[in-house]
Nucleic acid binder design. Structure first.
Lengths: 153, 153
DNA sequence: TTATCACTTTGTAACGATTCTAATTAAAGA
DNA sequence: TCTTTAATTAGAATCGTTACAAAGTGATAA
């Protein structure tokens, strides 16, 4: 079976880049922390565990490269750091985020939900949408009511 | 007639802050450039024209204060700088943005458009929404087709 | 008026995230 | 193999932003 790494390798090759050991280590960290929203520094520290000789600049360059190839998305929640998030395989669009103002948790919404809105925007503003960023700020289910259950995630 | 500045002054007073000359100059710049999305540096340079002795730190502090009071919104389009945008008077929610990948223009959408989506998110994810950020990246009407007209803005 | 107090501003230094640079290393092609 | 190009490294540099110490402002009360 073809693994996720194999497919990413192909994507790199298709753009005439190589999957060097440093790049592979970086991708593995991202795969192992798909749920999280790691900053470059976070990634760097985690990559160092499996590839101690890696440099911070390489991590930055790798993340930039992966962003260019749309393998990861670079996001920004308003604190001073950029975070990097693996894109769902085959996802045409970027997923949305729920940022809790109370506990800081970041949850993801994989559903699109924006189809109607995008149709309106494309027509009414004559704007050809390539991508979107949607983040809700508020109170998450955990903080909302401790007796409530984790919803449809 | 009560001016916009007067009302902002009241908002400051209500939170026991004063509208100092520096703060007033900063607000005036924002009012005079409501269409733009100025960075702190941009604001600083413009404020210097009407109040040359102002310090950069003061501009930052003023923008932070105005953000706290929800008079302006601090936004981030992924380039390394924060931009500041006057909130429409009476707007409960933050407006949306269209960022053109070709010419870099930033247009605004004042309509809400997200009501349905927010209802779904609140119910399905049990998430109490306080605010949102929605930005579309794509090709604007100007770049899309030079013969086309400025749409419903 | 003068003293006092809290708030504000100033310029500069410090900080932290990110990018650049120069030197080195690894890989790929001839 | 040799040559050429791409990738990596450590550390310096840069850039936006924040923190700090000193000075200024303005209101209140003796």
């Amino acid at each position: 079976m073809e693994t996720r790494i194999d497919r990413i390798k192909k994507q790199l090759h298709a753009a005439s880049y190589k999957l060097t050991p440093q790049r592979e280590a970086t991708v593995r960290v991202l795969l192992d922390h798909e749920e999280d929203h790691l900053s470059a520094e976070d990634v760097y520290l985690l990559v160092k565990d499996i590839a101690p000789e890696i440099g911070l600049a390489t991590v930055y360059r790798t993340l930039e490269l992966l962003t260019e190839l749309k393998i990861v998305d670079k996001i920004n929640f308003g604190d001073g750091v950029s975070r990097y998030d693996l894109r769902q395989e085959g996802a045409a669009h970027f997923h949305h985020h729920l940022v809790c103002l109370e506990c800081g948790a970041v949850d993801e919404i994989q559903e699109d939900l924006l189809e109607d809105v995008e149709n309106i925007v494309e027509k009414r503003w004559n704007f050809q949408i390539k991508d979107h960023r949607l983040t809700f700020h508020g109170i998450c289910w955990r903080c909302n009511d401790s007796s409530s259950q984790n919803p449809s995630e």
